[in-house]
Design a binder for these strands. Structure first.
Length: 108
DNA sequence: ACGATGACTCTTC
DNA sequence: GGAAGAGCCATCG
């Protein structure tokens, strides 16, 4: 399954996200050289449950710092982020500009 | 093979 | 600043 290859890249990058920080699907996709595959990154998040070790997908949000997907899942991620020190309100990351983590600039 | 759908993003109104 | 439309790729009926 070559899809897993792409997924693994996403997961690997996601695991490198420091605690108290969040990144966007587009940023991850761009880091992989496929900024237009933001949707696939989202799919990878949905499939991260199949990853080992598990992936902190709750640190991955949309470009505006908002949690997408099912309210149940999103709310869960919100609680996780808050536990990490990231302020989240109404499924949206507070001070997103401060907590935003760009793999291309920060990780390089 | 075709059309519709989606945890996205960007540009334009 | 919020809403709408178009673009993108992979998956599903």
């Amino acid at each position: 399954m070559k899809d897993e290859n792409f997924f693994e890249h996403v997961w690997e990058l996601t695991r490198q996200i420091p605690a108290g920080r969040v990144t966007s699907y587009g940023a991850i996709a761009k880091a992989l050289g496929t900024d237009n595959l933001s949707r696939m990154v989202a799919k990878a998040m949905g499939a991260c449950g199949n990853a080992n070790p598990p992936v902190p997908y709750y640190r991955v949000v949309s470009s505006d710092g908002r949690l997408s997907g099912d309210p149940a899942s999103a709310g869960k991620r919100q609680a996780m982020l808050e536990a990490e020190g990231v302020g989240v309100k109404a499924l949206k990351v507070l001070n997103f500009k401060q907590v935003c983590w760009d793999p291309l600039k920060e990780l390089e």
